[in-house]
Design a protein around this nucleic acid. Structure first.
Lengths: 300, 300
DNA sequence: ATATATTGATAACCGATGCGCATGAATTTC
DNA sequence: GAAATTCATGCGCATCGGTTATCAATATAT
């Protein structure tokens, strides 16, 4: 005896068991009365037992009908709740988002995005793994993180990169060291002045080197700091000037440093998001991505 | 988003999630590979999300697929267990049987039937309501009892009666009071001897009265006892003889009384089972009925 | 490197199923 | 006794789920 009732059948049955009339039950179930008659007949045939003793005047559940009602009532409830769980997940209202990010991007882009996201998706768990570029990419590739926030990585078959924000480089210095005027400055502004550089492996250093190369300048790099948090105090102490993307400014510390846009060439630090190629992200991750893009657009 | 997956779809999905290959999963699910492909596509369309990221070489669940797997796994288990519960009920292996019965029938027919029944149906709860004819019929009519064991009641629209056993009347007396010989005796055997009668309302009394009337005898009834348990000691004390259906003999007590079949006329007490008309009994009740009939046949 | 085999997707077709409409049969009500 | 109510049935239709045959893509073998 293979009982293979569909949730449809079970709810139809429950409507009938609850209303005690085929016409009424059919209306509530949203089908015609003959359709409901057939449905019940099929269930009875499958079981080999009547579910209702019915005359033209009354519809009374048999003991088997009562038993099925007991069972179907909980089963349908389970089913509905499961459907609800799944719907919440599919709509991105439940689940988990793990984001790997460079600390600089985490500070300026990720933090506010999480704040907004959690307002709309309070049940979604958000995990942050801050690390340098390599570990970020590794985490995404290995599946430990759903997405990675970093600067554009070299093209890779297993990862996809999508740009979010291009952060422009500018001069960073104490107010009293700033050239007169208000507009953008050329990179030649660094000529003849001490330049506080980042460590040779860092993405910022590679871009400043490239800028000087393009501009045909020879500016000797000093110090070679690994962390932005170290650069701020050094500039503030008057040890030199530096060039940094605008959004990193808050990470330097509160020393009242000024930022002036640099051009010739205009340099932009491409920040974006990487995901695994060929892997569908969880709905909550997609929703978070959308929030990230909105945040990026707002900061542009 | 109305998720309305059938158990079929869910188990198909689980087969795929577990095997990681359409071909293998289709085989286990008992359908062709294209059929499974389409089933999964339909589920994905219903959800608006992919459930598996697949190439020709790999089938990997998406986050949504993992979530559905988690949900479907428990849901299908619930479903199976519910189906099992229902099957046990439908096959009469679980449930409850309430039997209303005359004490005399309960003793001779019901008790052994229950004993056998419980061997085969250990999970079925059996309740006994022993009472006189009126309350027995009332209990059945009101639904408090699934079936009633009693002597044939007057025809009633709401009840159906089915005969089980016809219990023959015989002379009951002390061995020393018995007429010589071994064969059946005529009712005239009571002429001129004290006859211990039952109460006028009892079914036995009505049949003994009828027997004397048919035989054209005038035998004055003495005492008019209401309970069989009272009749035994009285006969054993030598206060008189009586006529009783054979199967009631054990109820008289252990006084070594003898029973000799009576004829001219042969009187039979019709015992049977009553059920509600137009109401399907529970499967366990049907199984119990079958056991009752087997028991009756064995005693005939 | 080219051929082969494996695997999932697609196309075409077909029988079964579920539904609605119209109608029938039984019973209560006026 | 006629009308109304209620569940069951017959019939036609659209949909669905299934199979076979075939395609497209990729890994493997020669």
């Amino acid at each position: 005896m293979r009982m293979n009732f569909t949730p449809q059948q079970l709810t139809a049955f429950l409507h009938l068991a609850r209303s005690g009339s085929f016409g009424e039950a059919a209306r509530r179930h949203g089908v015609s009365q003959p359709a409901l008659s057939r449905t019940i007949q099929q269930m009875e045939a499958a079981l080999g037992r009547r579910l209702f003793d019915r005359t033209t005047r009354s519809v009374v559940p048999t003991p088997t009908g009562l038993e099925l009602r007991r069972i179907a009532e909980t089963l349908v409830a389970e089913f509905d709740s499961a459907a609800d769980d799944l719907a919440r997940f599919v709509e991105g209202r439940s689940g988990r988002v793990a984001v790997a990010a460079l600390p600089s991007i985490a500070a300026v882009l990720l933090a506010p995005a999480i704040a907004r996201f959690r307002e709309r998706h309070p049940e979604v768990e958000v995990a942050v793994l801050d690390g340098l570029s390599g570990p970020v990419l590794d985490a995404v590739a290995a599946g430990g993180a759903d997405l990675g926030l970093t600067i554009r990585p070299p093209a890779q078959a297993t990862l996809v990169y999508r740009p979010l924000l291009a952060d422009e480089f500018g001069l960073v210095c104490r107010p009293e060291d700033a050239p007169a005027g208000e507009g953008p400055l050329p990179w030649s502004v660094f000529e003849g002045r001490p330049f506080v550089a980042m460590a040779p492996a860092s993405s910022v250093r590679q871009m400043t080197d490239a800028a000087f190369l393009q501009a045909g300048l020879a500016v000797p790099p000093l110090y070679g700091c690994a962390f932005l948090g170290t650069v701020g105090p050094m500039v503030a102490a008057g040890l030199g000037l530096t060039a940094l993307p605008r959004l990193t400014l808050p990470l330097l510390g509160s020393f009242g440093l000024v930022w002036r846009r640099l051009e010739r060439p205009v340099m932009r630090r491409p920040m974006g998001v990487v995901t695994r190629a060929g892997r569908s992200p969880a709905p909550a991750v997609l929703a978070f991505l959308a929030e990230l893009e909105r945040q990026a657009k707002a900061m542009r």
